[in-house]
Design a protein around this nucleic acid. Structure first.
Length: 336
DNA sequence: AAGGCTGGCAACCGCCGTCAA
DNA sequence: TTTGACGGCGGTTGCCAGCCT
């Protein structure tokens, strides 16, 4: 945290002067600045951030406004501590994506990349460190935050999804080994027949077993499912028309045709008991119907990456997910 | 009670990609 | 083709509150 600079008072008296770019404020945001930015965003929506800063009467750079909005003011932010389910998901996604915090955040509705990054660097890293020190193993000495940490973490006994049958994912293996490991462990050929609860692919790397439910996260357009056992499925929703919804995490799911989805923000102004509430609809959910599979990219704020291919070495998650839908999950084709 | 230490987290920094002129 | 503006992202910094000694 940084102190608000002493110029705050001066800025207050000079709010509408747009020629003060040389005196841009830094440091903590004052409540007045928050108010200005919030009301501007509510009334005008997101535009060019430097214009936002100027037109809102803020003596901040556009970047600073963007950051403040995304990390703090955005109405769809979830406050409070990470739930065990979120923690689990973060660990799992980090094992797949590494330090791609924005990608991870995109799959945790209401959470920001900064928040997740901080959480990882403080809480989870610490836990990894403790575990690696208490479980002497040749593979647990690396305290870096790279994905192979999870090898150490999982080998070291910290398997948060173990009760759900999560399998360790050896990210330091070769891609082919990794992929085969993933494919061997990840998908139940008949996921809905053999288990009392549904077996959901939690992305590459493990099973997520979740009892079907249709709990929707309020204010988020994507499909989100909380299983009775606490497993939390987020990402590309695959509605199979059964009693619940099965979710294949959309680690990459938006094709180039979806560029037309990136239009100007549309704000849905509505009232809730908490006062003004609005969603940037375009940002929160982009829906793509591709190959008869409804695939949704849950972006949070502006966290949609439309074209980045999520490849880990030679391992293309998009291909993997394709394989999943065509081979291991024939029922996914049922949607029309 | 006081000083030091540590964890959490907001915010900045610097780099990179994209796009328009 | 170049260049500058802008947005996005990951890494890092630095402040503050709470805990410890």
């Amino acid at each position: 945290m940084r102190k608000p600079e002493p110029s705050a008072a001066a800025a207050k008296n000079n709010n509408n002067n747009s020629n003060n770019t040389s005196k841009l404020r830094k440091g903590l945001w004052s409540p007045e600045e928050d108010d200005k930015l919030m009301s501007y965003m509510i009334n005008n929506g997101q535009g060019c951030w430097s214009d936002v800063a100027r037109n809102a009467g803020l003596q901040r750079c556009g970047k600073s406004c963007r950051l403040r909005w995304i990390n703090y003011l955005r109405p769809d932010l979830k406050r409070g501590a990470f739930s065990p389910q979120e923690e689990e998901l973060i660990i799992h996604l980090h094992s797949l994506l590494g330090n791609r915090w924005s990608q991870i955040a995109a799959r945790l509705p209401g959470r920001t990349d900064n928040e997740i990054k901080n959480f990882w660097n403080s809480t989870i890293k610490k836990r990894l460190k403790n575990l690696s020190s208490s479980n002497a193993s040749p593979n647990t000495s690396d305290s870096s935050s790279e994905p192979k940490d999870h090898h150490a973490m999982l080998a070291g006994g910290f398997i948060p999804g173990q009760e759900h049958g999560m399998m360790p994912l050896y990210m330091d293996s070769s891609p082919s080994l990794m992929q085969s490991t993933v494919l061997n462990h990840m998908f139940d050929p008949l996921p809905m027949l053999d288990h009392a609860s549904l077996t959901l692919p939690g992305g590459a790397g493990g099973y997520y077993n979740a009892t079907p439910c249709t709990t929707q996260i309020n204010g988020v357009g994507g499909d989100c499912c909380f299983g009775d056992n606490g497993v939390f499925g987020v990402g590309g929703g695959v509605d199979i028309g059964v009693e619940g919804e099965i979710f294949v995490p959309a680690l990459e799911c938006v094709s180039t045709e979806d560029q037309n989805l990136k239009t100007e923000p549309i704000y849905d102004h509505r009232n809730t008991t908490n006062g003004n509430y609005y969603n940037n609809i375009n940002s929160i959910t982009n829906t793509n119907y591709n190959n008869n599979i409804k695939v949704e990219n849950i972006g949070v704020g502006n966290y949609y990456d439309d074209q980045e291919e999520l490849t880990m070495g030679e391992w293309d998650l998009e291909d993997l997910m394709k394989d999943v839908s065509s081979a291991s999950f024939p029922f996914l084709d049922h949607r029309s």
